[in-house]
Design a binder for these strands. Structure first.
Length: 482
RNA sequence: GGCGAAGUGGCCGAGUGGUCAGGCAGAGGUCUGCAAAACCUUCUACAGCGGUUCGAGUCCGCUCUUCGCCUCCA
């Protein structure tokens, strides 16, 4: 069953065939680190995390590079405005590099909570200035870039096919959108900066053959992608809002420099919206993940994100999150029941579910359908467990193996053990388990003596403490509420 | 204005021609000391108007509406 990926460049689903059999090179645009991550980052990086995980499940060796943009780019037009990181540094009365480091760590903390695997290489833009300068030199030599007054610009007219990703190929149209009246030494308004001379007071700056300055925004991805993954990479991912100008700029400067195709499959994920409006830092409607995690289990957020397709907009609301929470709890409960059941004789065929799950994932990573397969499975398993014959040990193991691969390894919404965090030691878990066993025994005794006031009190008080009791045919079980 | 995407039931959200998405919420039932969970049954859809077709959320056209990009942005 081959994998199909929707390629933003061709606007069709294409059969995935990496450049080298068995090996996938993948680059995803990372965050600009001048603030805490928000729900939009969660959607993006959870989506690409599942892409990486499924490729690995499918047997590929994946080299995953995701940059950290720690060069401050401008808040405004390409020629005006203050650098974002410098601005944040001024607001926090801090050094720009400390700002970048602080928010980089914050980003990974949040991603860890969401079970997003770290990239194999996470290159920082500031650590690759020489590579970026070398790429500019290459472009100047080949006549695709020019230097004026210490600034270097990419000549858009020199690259045929500029704008092919976004569909913006009419250069005259570019000009109409550009504000008049700003002073610029560009030859053409559509040309974009590769190197900018630093103004007085600009804090993040480096030496270059042209001026003391800083690199253009699009440049770092091209330079670092080439350095770690080669001139042609298999997959490049990013947010849709970056198709133009960022990704079209990357294509132009990369392909102009190498003469090789830059990316084989472009993947773009859609936005998170609130009441239909895009969530964005600059729009001041973004939902900070650290705040969100105070009330909502990060796994619920991950599940919520994966319940919609990565190319669809995802509309945030508290009711939607709550629905996801209840839904995820249902899947967890089935998994728990399965683990706790006493071996029976029933035979359960897992193959059709495996097949449907793989089919969904191979169809451009259709996680909502993949999750619906898990719900169908949940229903079938619960029904089987309700029957006296239950599941044989062999069948139970088959189902658990599938749940581990699909739910834990691929979607990563059902962790192997979600009762306690990883920080809790095995010893304390064991002790807690012992205490719970005693409480359940006391409650069972009370019920046997028809002392329902006591048994209900135990149940109610435990629920207040965040532990739910369920009476099953095989006795009571308990679980921690998320 | 230019480029691109989308409008599905109370809510979220799949589905590119021919029984069914799925989740949440609602209703009825089974089970239970009661609850919870689970299971069974069940009610609300494809923005509008034309067209193609034996047959259309699904293809085509028009209209209306929404969103993204054209400034930094996942």
């Amino acid at each position: 069953m081959p994998l199909f990926i929707y390629n933003s460049l061709s606007r069709t689903k294409e059969k995935f065939e990496p450049l080298q059999p068995g090996f996938v090179s993948m680059y995803v645009c990372g965050p600009t680190v001048y603030g805490h991550a928000h729900l939009g980052h969660a959607k993006s990086y959870v989506s690409f995390d599942v892409v990486v995980r499924w490729l690995r499940q499918s047997g590929y060796r994946v080299k995953y590079v995701q940059n950290i943009t720690d060069v401050g780019h401008l808040t405004d037009d390409a020629d005006e405005g203050e650098d974002k990181i410098t601005k944040q540094a001024r607001l926090e009365q801090n050094d720009p590099m400390e700002i970048a480091q602080f928010y980089t760590r914050s980003f990974y903390e949040d991603m860890d909570q969401l079970e997003v695997l770290r990239p194999n290489i996470a290159p920082a833009a500031t650590a690759h200035i020489p590579e970026q300068i070398a790429l500019i030199e290459r472009l100047i030599k080949s006549g695709h870039a020019y230097e004026i007054n210490g600034n270097v610009y990419f000549s858009v007219a020199s690259f045929e096919g500029y704008g092919k990703l976004s569909g913006r190929t009419d250069l005259d149209a570019h000009q109409s959108g550009i504000r008049v009246g700003i002073r610029s030494d560009k030859r053409e308004p559509a040309d974009f900066a590769l190197w900018k001379k630093a103004d007085d007071g600009h804090l993040m700056k480096w030496n270059s053959p042209w001026s003391i300055g800083y690199p253009g925004w699009h440049l770092e991805c091209s330079a670092m992608s080439m350095k770690y993954l080669g001139e042609t990479i298999d997959i490049h991912g990013g947010g849709m809002e970056n198709k133009f100008p960022h990704h079209d700029g990357e294509i132009a400067q990369s392909e102009a420099a190498t003469g090789q195709p830059y990316v084989r499959y472009w993947m773009h994920n859609n936005m998170v919206t609130i009441d239909g409006i895009k969530m964005g830092k600059s729009l001041k409607n973004s939902i900070n993940l650290k705040e969100l995690f105070k009330e909502t289990d990060p796994m619920v957020i991950r599940f919520f994100v994966l319940q919609s397709h990565y190319r669809s907009q995802l509309d945030y609301s508290e009711t939607a999150i709550k629905a996801s929470k209840t839904g995820l709890e249902k899947l967890r409960e089935t998994k728990r029941r399965l683990q706790e059941q006493k071996p029976g004789t029933g035979v359960f065929a897992i193959a059709p579910f495996q097949h449907r799950f793989a089919e969904a994932m191979d169809d451009d990573f259709n996680t909502p359908v993949a999750i619906s397969v898990l719900f169908d499975l949940s229903k079938a398993i619960n029904a089987a467990l309700d029957r006296p014959e239950a599941l044989s040990e062999a069948s139970r193991q088959d189902v658990e193996a599938f749940l581990d691969r699909a739910g834990s390894q691929t979607l990563c919404i059902l962790k192997p053990d979600n009762l306690f965090s990883d920080r809790d030691s095995k010893e304390s878990v064991k002790k807690f388990d012992g205490v719970m066993t005693i409480l359940l025994e006391l409650r069972a005794e009370a019920r046997k003596n028809k002392d329902f006031a006591l048994s209900d009190k135990i149940r109610d008080r435990l629920l207040e403490a965040g532990i739910a009791i369920k009476d099953t045919r095989d006795g009571a079980s308990w679980s921690v509420q998320s």
